[in-house]
Amino acid sequence: MTQLQLIVRNCRMYFRDRAAVLFSLLTMAIVIALMVIFLGDMNVNSVTNILTEFGTEPLGTNYEEQASRLMLMWTIAGIMAVNAVNVSLAVTGISVSDNAQHKTASFLTSPVSRTTLSLGYIGAAFICSVLMCLVTLAAAECFAVFAWGVPALSLSAHLKIIGITAVNAFCYSSILYLISIFIRSNSAWSGFGTVIGTLVGFLGAIYVPMGGLPQYVQSGLKFTPVIYSSSLYRQVFTEELISNTFKAVPDAVIEEYMEQMGITLSAGGDTISAFLQIAILIFCGIIALSAAALIMKHRSVKDR
């Protein structure tokens, strides 16, 4: 009951703070703005060029429309990936604020353990992330289907997205909570949030596609979990569109395109499977959770 009530409290704290909700959607707004103003056309052109070169559709087929639909879904996938990071950032920030305002000390004079408190923040971050991602999914899909005529995602695609969202939310809730343990003031957390909120679009190769980045940056990104999140989402969101759009395009070209756009990832010449990508995200989450638990245990022994 106590655990559940702490999670409920933290969820309320997030959802009732309109500024926190708004700022956690800021990266999404940046992604949309970048796509509309700068990068959208560039990405669409690259698809149109491939289709013009290899297309077998009758004369007059609107390649640009097909390309735009593909890029729309690619962008939505990126937004889904960064959403979990930003919402987790906002919710785990409650723990920093609680510490700074002596609320944590007040909680700890009750029988509640530090572990229960920590799980309260992580649990709330997980729930809020999943909910916000699902709301984003619903809104984005409605927009894609009704405004752009993109075929609706299949049931299995929806289930996959929900699964990826859960894994994603777990991973970032744990990692960001671990980081929040070391940050003592609201202003420091706010500064950290600004950096992460901006950086996450690059880490997930969302602002600039993977192929547009130097090789060493591409390699570096594979050491962060965000790139796996965006890749996993992109695989599901673009699967059907790629097979329909690139019907006549040779497999080697499609594979290269998917890698350039960060839809698939490879290491040492081999494609990293979706299963392995999910495992990496879960592993990162477990490591962060274990580290947070160890630190909390140490703090409990030292002083409560």
Binding site: R12, K103, A105, S110, P111
Partner: peptide, 23 residues
Amino acid sequence: YQQNCLDDILTVEENLLLRGYLF
């Protein structure tokens, strides 16, 4: 404590009930 420790954004009832649940 000298400083207020309840949550501004929650109602008085929610704040008080949470304290009870902590016990």
